[in-house]
Write a protein that binds this DNA or RNA. Structure first.
Lengths: 224, 224
DNA sequence: CATCAAGTGGAGAATTTTCTCCGGTTAAGT
DNA sequence: ACTTAACCGGAGAAAATTCTCCACTTGATG
């Protein structure tokens, strides 16, 4: 999936085949370890799990931030693909909403979206992806809303938050079990989205613009 | 809240007043930083944020695990209190279920339950608390179920998972916003718990016994 | 199949984090 | 007020992690 297009769009010479393979192994190992232990894991551990030397890791990703950023970008990329996949499938609006969550849930293991401790979110590429995701979700949501299958005080941010929450790792449970719990949770949440008998929500929805803009101000003491 | 009873029950001499104060400051700082950055943050950072010397931290908590464990135990303790509070309030079963989530949600900021990367969950004290929480939740759930206000394929584990998910930190959003989103999510989820029009859930519920028992086997490479 | 730029691993220097120790301070008892 | 045992902070030794460098290997190209 994350093939060549996720490198700089500028004219860099393409990677050699073995280098490309190692790069992907590193990203896969990083993804796993970030989900298991957070983004502060020792980089040498990542290199070890990826089966490459430390030098190889540092050559490809000059510092921790570069690696974290790439893993997160990949996550958003995967997420966007899932969401657009859901929109593309012909289905009535209620089913589309369900598909949205199912598609994202399928990618659970590969998503490292939310344990950001720094200004990574400001990256233009990431904001771009976030907006694209938001717009796609909004599209699905609007259709569902006008078909009357979803209560109309729900915003795209609600759905995105819900999806992000169920995708986060539960490192103390085996994968199979946490997948089952996540799927059950989504089913209940989806059922709760329907307008029948809805009572007003307890808090106002954050404005769309506010969403990506807030980042921890303590940029000096993040990571290590 | 976390007063004297959370130290060893064995006959240790009580801490001096200043020591007790420092101990609490350390735990509060640890709680914050664990939520912001994960349990791998530098211990000296915790000492700094707590406003105590490094020596003070290490005197009170011999290593990272001891500190993590205590923060987690505190979290479960707070959680149990919230849950029991909800059970104690006289309310009809539907409201009790709602209260359950509200009480837990109120404590969001102080809960560091789920980013465990090691065998901390095996601690007898923690298992004890987990069981007490489960039993209390089950009690509320059973009453709600027999009042017919909740679909009957929902288990205590579902509710606990749901609560854990909404309590997890969203470090890229300001507190106020993540609190609002969490509250909205819970409202929708609660609505979805009602039996009217329920379709079968997509996966089997994990057996109650399995829940606390699974822990990452890679005990050697956890933390650092 | 020869050439060679690109890529590799891992030793070890540089940096950061952990953790100990002790001279000075303070709460608590009398 | 005075005594004293508990406690404190922070300097710095010890351990761990980060990151560089280079002799060796390998994939691509003609």
């Amino acid at each position: 999936m994350a093939a060549a297009y996720d490198r700089q769009v500028t004219t860099e010479p393409p990677l050699r085949a073995d280098a490309q393979r190692n790069r992907e192994r590193i990203l896969a190992a990083a993804r796993e370890l970030f989900r298991e232990q957070g983004t502060a894991v020792a980089l040498d551990d990542i290199a070890r799990r990826a089966g490459v030397g430390a030098g190889t890791l540092y050559r490809r990703f000059p510092d921790r931030d570069a690696l974290v950023r790439q893993v997160i970008v990949d996550g958003f990329e995967i997420c966007l693909a899932a969401v657009e996949g859901a929109r593309a499938e012909p289905a009535d609006p209620a089913v589309a909403l369900e598909r949205l969550f199912l598609r994202v849930l399928e990618q659970r293991e590969r998503l490292v979206l939310p344990l950001i401790g720094g200004p990574v979110v400001r990256e233009p590429r990431i904001q771009e992806l976030q907006h694209a995701i938001r717009d796609t979700v909004e599209d699905i949501l609007v259709r569902a809303r006008s078909a009357g299958v979803v209560r109309d005080d729900i915003t795209p941010e609600d759905l995105i938050t819900a999806a992000a929450m169920v995708c986060r790792p539960m490192p103390h449970l085996p994968d199979e079990m946490s997948a089952a719990l996540a799927a059950r949770h989504v089913a209940v949440y989806l059922h709760g989205l329907r307008p029948e008998g809805a009572r007003p929500l307890p808090a106002a929805a954050p404005a769309p613009g506010d969403f990506g803009r807030h980042v921890a101000m303590d940029a000096e003491q993040r990571s290590r």
